[in-house]
């Protein structure tokens, strides 16, 4: 049971990591478009078309597919509520990536929140 839990947590961290890489590529592609102003359907479709011709979006897509396959394997062996809660560890990866790769700034309160997430994940995994 304990070994099974560790394997499940390891698989969840792999899917979280792939998801973070996917989000980073997506965010970087969107930023490179400099898309601002008002929403409307024509502009949204134009925006999506411009995104789809970026190689970075396809890299993002590849990581999504890997993440999905691992996720489905996780779901075959764990309860959805546990898997989904534990998957919040992608916040920790995203926090680190936002800070160190995208160079977004954030306060100590943000780190405290991220710390609470870690404790929460431990609690969720305890039973």
């Amino acid at each position: 049971m304990r070994a099974g839990l560790l394997i499940t947590l390891f698989m969840i961290s792999l899917t979280s990591l792939c998801d973070t890489i996917n989000q980073l590529f997506l965010k970087s592609a969107i930023d490179s478009l400099n898309f601002g102003g008002k929403f409307n359907f024509v502009r949204i479709f134009k925006f999506i078309f411009q995104l789809l011709i970026r190689p970075r979006v396809w890299l993002s897509f590849v990581f999504s597919v890997i993440s999905l396959c691992i996720w489905l394997l996780v779901l075959s062996r764990a309860d959805l509520n546990f898997a989904f809660s534990a998957d919040s560890m992608h916040y920790i990866f995203i926090a680190l990536a936002s800070r160190f790769i995208l160079k977004e700034k954030f306060s100590s309160l943000r780190w405290l929140g991220t710390g609470l997430l870690v404790v929460g994940i431990v609690f969720v995994s305890l039973n």
Partner: peptide, 25 residues
């Protein structure tokens, strides 16, 4: 699915973490 009290506490901690993160923004 069954969710124990301990797990709900964990879920609430995760949500609290998320809210703190929002507040810091």
């Amino acid at each position: 699915e069954q969710i124990s009290v301990l797990r709900w506490i964990g879920i609430l901690l995760i949500l609290a973490g998320v809210i703190l993160v929002s507040l810091s923004s």
